[in-house]
Design a protein around this nucleic acid. Structure first.
Lengths: 353, 353
DNA sequence: CTGAAAGCGCTTACAG
DNA sequence: CTGAAAGCGCTTACAG
């Protein structure tokens, strides 16, 4: 392979005897030239094997600003996501792109979220990333942005009644399936499994239950019930305790939400560690002890960091490079056991500083 | 966050009344200025919060060429690796970097490999990536490069007696551990497990066995034996058949190398599908049917594509950005089950075009 | 050891 | 609708 100088707009300019400005307009699809000229330029560019140099492009154009807003909860999930966002922003910092990150207090802060979205609409922001939690209620803020042609990327869960650019989220259905498939090997015959979620109204949690159900149907075991922890560690502890004391046939718990630490504590407190198998969700340092002492047999890692990275990269490509994107982008869950837990944790912690 | 113009070398130049060239020399560590000036420039740059713009840098400097050579075998592994390499080269194409990729016929082509390395040494190549398979025998070619200060990155396995820049490889030990930990749940009590490798002399395969052994020691099951398939599907079939016909207590097979398809076929032919659990290695389309019909219960994915990506990115950072790198870089294996197999396969296939 | 100039490949006002 | 010029932030010969 011999090094070949790349074709540049100068080459096209020379070839066609047309100014650089005209070529730029043709290639970037900007108005102000005749269709005839545009066609000629595009054809010649294609023929000559021209490919735009993104570096030169970024260097020359005005900076891009992304507005980002998400709830200040579930640190093991949202901090990791923010981390992914920050990481990819840094990676793109030379590309003349920057961001404005804001947070709203909790999952239920719809009004606060709309307020932030409105302020983005007035601040000359080029694109917005946000995390809706429930199935609706954000339209007021989002539609104002969309009407102004500001692309919106949703993360975590989708909204059906909003013309967002794309939605990036964990494949929750697959997470549920994977948990059920693994649980099958852990379970002693004739035992049933309880599923813990945060709240039945959360799309993400609904889908996990659905996936888990579907997969369980293939196997000779049953779901004991689906329980809402309301994201409260005490509730999680209490439900676990009640289930165990009921003396049912409980053999496993799939914790599809946070609070797995409470569940582990309870199982240990009641001396049921070897009897009840636990498959939990997400990876964070507090889980290490429960992994090491075999209270937890497996984890479903949702890779929130990757979701953050994809959000920034997708927007960048859309705005700076004019590239279309998939209507939905899924991040696939991974199954993590004791032996590889540490390697995941290391990677997460390493990327946090 | 208000948009702040970045500090550039022009700003420093103005501040110190020193030419751009001098500042460039100070910052890039090039010779030709006094220590005094260098120190002053570096301190001022730091104080002003200067960060180099890599885009502008790449645009201005001469192109970088990487020489890459690996054996033309194990397509499910090396093609994926090459794919990762090509992908990241494309991603970096605007950065004024290109590559020269060569292949040698097989695992044992030491002489051919050395010949390619020698030609790289004479071709003004800025860095070399190669895949040694055995523990030695490549020194002649590698040391010539290293003596000429051309950085060498090893992939797949390491060489102890060579001053390579870094070695990027799958964490084979962890792959073995993970396989053993999962196998534990699959295995019916009192059954043993056979381990299939390609060749006992391959570092990678040795380490897998070691990791598998270590983890098995924690559990109440035994290793039936370690068998070499010599990368021959017929040998793999034959060994499987012999083991099953011996009527031993065989309950599972960990296929740590290629040829898992032969193993599956044999197990099916002898009607032992439900009795013998299989954990195999790598992900490729031919495995789909054996995953779907539950002949294979799990896969250890070594992410060869990621290894390729990391090789290119590491070299780029080292040469273009003058960044040091870790002495060893490990890619961690992942456990894949039936429910998420398709999502991995899709990703691999999608990235192949 | 230091500086002034040209150039990398593109975009962006601005003039015609 | 089209063009000539300046500029993005750096590097690279070359002159002094």
């Amino acid at each position: 392979m011999i090094y070949l100088r790349r074709v540049t707009i100068k080459d096209i300019s020379r070839e066609l005897n047309v100014s650089l400005n005209t070529i730029n307009k043709a290639i970037t699809g900007k108005p102000g030239i005749s269709e005839e000229t545009r066609k000629l330029v595009l054809e010649t560019a294609d023929k000559m094997g021209y490919k735009v140099n993104k570096l030169a492009q970024s260097l020359a154009r005005n900076p891009i600003t992304i507005g980002i807003v998400f709830p200040n909860v579930w640190p093991e999930y949202y901090s990791s996501m923010e981390n992914g966002i920050t990481k990819s922003l840094n990676a793109l910092s030379d590309y003349n792109i920057n961001a404005e990150i804001r947070k709203v207090p909790n999952l239920f802060s719809k009004k606060e979220l709309i307020k932030v979205l409105n302020s983005f609409a007035n601040e000359n922001i080029d694109a917005v990333v946000t995390c809706p939690i429930f199935e609706g209620g954000y339209e007021e803020g989002l539609n104002k942005l969309i009407n102004r042609k500001i692309p919106v990327v949703l993360m975590g869960s989708d909204l059906l009644n909003v013309q967002r650019l794309t939605c990036i989220r964990a494949n929750a259905f697959l997470a549920g399936e994977l948990a059920a498939e693994y649980m099958r090997w852990l379970l002693v015959p004739q035992r049933s499994v309880a599923v813990f979620i945060g709240n039945k109204d959360l799309t993400d949690h609904k889908e996990k239950v659905e996936g888990f159900r579907r997969e369980v149907n293939r196997f000779p075991y049953k779901i004991n019930g689906v329980y809402e922890t309301q994201d409260d560690p005490e509730v999680a502890y209490h439900i676990t305790k009640k289930l165990i004391e009921e003396g049912s046939d409980l053999g496993g718990i799939y914790v599809a939400t946070g609070n797995s630490v409470s569940v582990c504590k309870c199982v240990q407190d009641l001396g049921k560690k070897t009897e009840i198998k636990i498959v939990a969700t997400d990876i964070f340092p507090e889980l290490k002890q429960y992994i090491d002492d075999n209270t937890i047999q497996g984890l479903i890692f949702q890779n929130p960091q990757m979701q953050g990275r994809l959000a920034v990269e997708t927007i960048y490509r859309y705005i700076a490079e004019n590239k279309s994107c998939e209507r939905e982008i899924f991040v696939n869950p991974q199954l993590v056991l004791r032996s590889n837990f540490q390697s995941y944790l290391d990677r997460i912690l390493a990327s946090e500083n």
